[in-house]
C-alpha cells in the first residue's frame, strides 16, 4: 500500500513538471518560483525544527552506551562507547556523523536450533547508507558548477576522480550511478525483508523514490536526453544572483529534475530527512555518560503546590466530624491546645 502510494505520488510529481513546464509553458514557475519557495521552506523549516528541539528540556540523562563507564581510576573505560567528557562526546558524535558507527553495529537476528535466537553481524544497511550519503554529498558538491563562476576548483577536483574511468562522453561520473543504485538498494531492502517491510510507511518509501527520481532524471539529462547546459547555468546563476531569468530552449527534462529537487527541499523539514539536523541533537548520542560525577537536575523542577492532609483536615474538620468521618485531631483537643497555648502566653 505505502509503496504504491509513494510510487504514484512521485509519478504524479513528474507528470506535474512534464505538463506544467512542457505543455503549459510555466517554465518561470518551475524554474524560478518553486526553487525559491523550496529554499525558503527548507531553511526556515529546518532552523525552526532545530530551535524547537533546542527548547525542549532533556530532563533525563539518557546517553545510550555500549562500553565500560568511567568509574574507578584502575578500571579502563571506553572513551567512544561511553564518553565521560565533552571532548569524548565530540569524537563519538563526529564518528557517528561521518562513519555511521551505530549503524555499523547493526545485527541480524535469526531463530537458531532449539528456538534460540542467533545474532550475526549485518553490515549491508551500513554499507548501503554510507554509499548513499557520500555519493549524494559528492553529487551535491558537483552541482556547485552551476552556482559558481568560474566553476569552483572543487568541481574539477571531484570531476577528475569521479569520472576517472572515462566511460563514454561526457564522462560517466560514478557517484551518480552509485547514488541511484544505493537508493534502489535501500528501497528494495524495505520491500524484501519482511520485518522491515512491516514497519515501513509511505514516509519511508517516498523520499527514497523521490531521490531515485532525482538521480534518474539527472543521469538521463547528462547522458541521454541532453539539454543546453550553458542555458541551464544562465538560469541557476540567475537564481543565485537574484536576477532570475528563464532562457528559452531548456529541455523539459531539466524542469522535471529541478521540480523534484524543489519538492525534496520543501519536504525536508517535515519528514524523517531532518535527521540532517536531528543527528546532532539526539540526547542518546550527545550527552556524556557522567551521571556518577555530575548531578543532573530536571530543568522543569519547580516548587510544587501541595495540600497536605493536615491542612485538609484543618479545613474540613467540623464537616468531617458531622459526617462521622474519623479525624486525627478532635475539635476539643484543638480547643484545649489553644487554651494551653493562651495560658502559656
Amino acid at each position: 500500500m505505502g509503496v504504491w502510494f509513494s510510487f504514484w505520488v512521485v509519478v504524479g510529481l513528474i507528470l506535474v513538471a512534464l505538463i506544467g513546464a512542457g505543455l503549459l509553458n510555466l517554465s518561470v514557475i518551475f524554474g524560478v518560483v518553486f526553487p525559491y519557495l523550496a529554499l525558503v521552506v527548507f531553511l526556515v523549516g529546518l532552523i525552526y525544527r532545530v530551535v524547537q528541539w533546542g527548547k525542549t528540556p532533556v530532563p533525563f540523562h539518557i546517553p545510550t552506551t555500549c562500553g565500560q563507564q568511567k568509574s574507578l581510576s584502575w578500571i579502563k573505560y571506553s572513551k567512544l562507547e561511553s564518553p565521560a567528557t565533552g571532548w569524548e562526546v565530540f569524537l563519538r558524535m563526529f564518528l557517528e556523523v561521518v562513519a555511521f558507527r551505530s549503524l555499523f553495529r547493526n545485527l541480524r537476528t535469526e531463530m537458531g536450533p532449539g528456538f534460540r535466537p542467533v545474532y550475526g553481524s549485518s553490515k549491508w544497511l551500513w554499507l548501503g547508507g554510507i554509499a548513499f550519503h557520500y555519493s549524494f554529498l559528492i553529487v551535491f558538491l558537483r552541482h556547485l558548477r552551476f552556482f559558481t563562476q568560474p566553476p569552483s576548483k572543487l568541481v574539477s577536483i571531484i570531476d577528475s576522480f569521479d569520472g576517472f574511468l572515462q566511460i563514454g562522453h561526457p564522462h560517466l561520473q560514478l557517484t551518480g550511478v552509485v547514488l541511484f543504485f544505493a537508493a534502489l538498494y535501500l528501497f528494495l531492502r524495505r520491500l524484501y525483508i519482511p520485518q522491515v517491510r512491516y514497519i515501513s510507511l509511505p514516509a519511508d518509501y517516498f523520499p527514497l523514490l523521490l531521490i531515485m527520481g532525482i538521480a534518474g532524471s539527472g543521469i538521463l539529462m547528462r547522458y541521454f536526453i541532453k539539454t543546453d547546459i550553458t542555458k541551464v547555468k544562465e538560469l541557476t546563476m540567475g537564481l543565485a544572483t537574484f536576477h532570475p531569468k528563464v532562457p528559452e530552449g531548456i529541455g523539459v527534462i531539466f524542469y522535471v529534475h529541478i521540480f523534484l529537487v524543489s519538492v525534496l527541499f520543501a519536504y525536508f523539514p517535515f519528514s524523517k530527512l531532518v535527521h540532517l539536523g536531528g543527528v546532532f541533537l539526539s540526547p542518546t548520542r550527545n550527552l556524556a555518560n557522567n551521571s556518577r560525577m555530575k548531578r543532573h537536575i530536571n530543568p522543569w523542577d519547580y516548587p510544587v503546590k501541595v495540600h497536605t492532609y493536615e491542612e485538609y483536615e484543618e479545613e474540613f474538620r467540623e464537616k468531617m466530624k458531622m459526617a462521622g468521618i474519623p479525624v486525627e485531631k478532635d475539635i476539643e483537643e484543638e480547643e484545649t491546645e489553644e487554651k494551653e497555648q493562651e495560658e502559656k502566653e
Partner: peptide, 17 residues
Amino acid sequence: FALFPIYSNFGKTYKPP
C-alpha cells in the same frame, strides 16, 4: 554551507558564454 552560492555571488552579474 547552505547559502554559499548566494553570498559568494553577491553583487555579481553573470555573463553567459
